[in-house]
Design a protein around this nucleic acid. Sequence first.
DNA 1: GATTTCTCACCTAGGTGGGAACAT
DNA 2: ATGTTCCCACCTAGGTGAGAAATC
Lengths: 205, 205
Amino acid sequence: MFSSSWVVAGKADPVSPPRIHVHPDSPAAGAHWMRQLVSFDKLKLTNNQLDDNGHIILNSMHRYQPRLHVVYLPAEGARPASASASASATSPSTVPYRTFVFPETGFTAVTAYQNHRITQLKIASNPFAKGFRDCDPDDCPPEQSQQRAVARRREAAAPEPCPALAQPYAAEPSACGPLYAHAHTVRYQPHAGPNTTYSAYYAHR
Amino acid sequence: MFSSSWVVAGKADPVSPPRIHVHPDSPAAGAHWMRQLVSFDKLKLTNNQLDDNGHIILNSMHRYQPRLHVVYLPAEGARPASASASASATSPSTVPYRTFVFPETGFTAVTAYQNHRITQLKIASNPFAKGFRDCDPDDCPPEQSQQRAVARRREAAAPEPCPALAQPYAAEPSACGPLYAHAHTVRYQPHAGPNTTYSAYYAHR
DNA sequence: GATTTCTCACCTAGGTGGGAACAT
DNA sequence: ATGTTCCCACCTAGGTGAGAAATC
């Protein structure tokens, strides 16, 4: 058996090139942001340190805490001709902003799920993975022939469903032991300096 | 034979509900618009008079002249809290703007092409119609077995290509006689009052 | 008889996990 | 032994013209 806890494994890996995802609606007035839910579903993650698509660069098997920055931008006539990005780059201390952290959005980056319940959760709730379902939840004949899933699938382990994961995306991960969630719609900022980043050990169950 | 000219066929049909397509980048500074080509490829057309998707409503077999309006929007601090759209609706004469017309963008709306050369032009140049091509222009074996096109296709008429249409989307339509082009990326405004709109007669060749 | 609508096979574009191959 | 990369079949979503059916 393994101990189910995190352990420090030495100094952290070098930090990735820090990148910011600017919401596509930016800049916009406060009324715009309050009008509806603000979604970051255009944000993309990568583990390619040389990425040039503007994606957020992560290290696999490391833990991240998304942070949200709300930046006040003066009216167009009141600021210099240069774009706001360069203005904040040259004098960041003069740009007023507030930062918000939602601890429930913290996640561990992975290249492969470490817990097959997460796999089942994604298959059940993501329309693009419909091909891996045993049964379409929307129209599933009670005892009839199941919708044929991908032919070459040959999963050995039993499903052993976790009650806490019955509602997709709504469960508290710790309810089923250490889980490694794949996050699609998060904003990235390393939450601490290089010497305090969680390092590469993780717990099996 | 038919006469190859337009004739007046009585009073015009009632005008469609007038709609404006606002470019998705709006509002933006002049420097933004000058940075690259300004594309209206998100604009969609419909002949459904009851459309509620915000598409531009056209009458089939009628002629249209797109118009481009450049509207000056004062800096955010200098204008009232209400959005610019409502401001121009309540007092249009106070909104400074300029209108540009490019006669070469005029077109006739249709539900089906009236000239099969246009069909061939679209098939040759639109990636979504690749299934109807006899041969992929990018990799076509010189004399080998042609790429199989859609099976149930049974076009009777010979291709009889028009030299002026050799370069997709670049030809002057009148070079091959009266053509009825399908326009995807245009801005709509009826170019005259209801009594001077072209009506439903058109010329065969 | 001419025009419009509808369904279809055929595409593009891209988001899924599976699993083999590869790297460390 | 473990973690990563790559290709694949399988999906969603939606843009094509062909041709039958419907409409007028």
